[in-house]
Nucleic acid binder design. Structure first.
Lengths: 148, 148
DNA sequence: GGCTAATTGCAACATTGTTGCATTTAGTCT
DNA sequence: AGACTAAATGCAACAATGTTGCAATTAGCC
């Protein structure tokens, strides 16, 4: 996974530096969207120190290469797991544990685009975010209620 | 419109203060999502000075009363134009002029919820944002290309 | 190993968001 | 209308997040 991204960097003529490897590793290990400062904090816990400016610039680069994706909704960054052929991203974010899951559906995407077209709006990019409880947290919440 | 919101404040036992009226007026006059500091700047242009802390608190209150809605995507605030019966908000944001339009569709909403249910995810709130060009800006962009 | 452009770090700053407490004010009662 | 009081606002100080220009470092090349 990280290796794939490194490939992209190399073939596009970008240097594979230590900071870039470190940010890649963090993004790949994360289950939730991370802000630049989140990434800095996580690295610091591993005894690695990166300047926040550097992280901002690395994330900008990654997004431009589609190695990462910036959620409009949270401002957080996630690694790109699905292609972006439709300019459409769908996420489920658990408001209890913060985990994030990406999913895709062309049908939904097309429907949404048709809808906006009715308003004479020309959609370039679509973001959809469902916030709620992931299966784990739902179960836990339920157990709690059962006990109380 | 503003009058309706004032009604809500009164019936819920909140004071109708000058700052609250001013923020309501700005939100109602705006065609795009506004950050707290945006609102402060707009008011200042009218010779009205509000502390930013006050604006933050007013917006919090408005959101809790459903008089305003905070976009997850931009962090900006808009007045609530449509009911929130489904916990679902759909927006079109023009990336050229920044204007925003809200729309609703129960069908889309239900479909989306079914989808997430397949992942064993329990959706509480759904946000959908289409970013692209509004009809005006699309036309302008086209004219430009024609001339160039 | 040395060279050079690309990358990173640093410093300084701008913007945005938060908290506690003193001051002011809207709504109520007389 | 004037006084009272809880609610609301303003203020000060701070914390967190983003941005810019320039000097120092480093990856990828010879």
């Amino acid at each position: 996974m990280v290796q794939d991204s490194i490939q992209v960097l190399q073939t596009q003529g970008y240097k594979v530096t230590k900071p870039r490897r470190q940010v890649l590793a963090i993004l790949n290990g994360a289950q939730r969207p991370l802000s630049p400062y989140d990434i800095q904090r996580l690295l610091r816990q591993q005894g690695k120190h990166l300047n926040h400016v550097t992280i901002y610039r690395i994330l900008d680069l990654f997004c431009s290469l589609n190695l990462a994706h910036k959620l409009l909704s949270t401002g957080g960054f996630v690694k790109c797991v699905l292609g972006d052929k439709e300019g459409c991203h769908r996420f489920m974010v658990c408001h209890r544990c913060g985990t994030l899951q990406e999913f895709a559906d062309e049908g939904l995407c097309q429907e949404e685009n048709e809808f906006t077209r009715n308003f004479d709006f020309h959609t370039k990019y679509h973001l959809s975010e469902s916030s709620g409880l992931c299966s784990n947290c739902y179960r836990k919440q339920h157990q709690k209620q059962g006990n109380a």
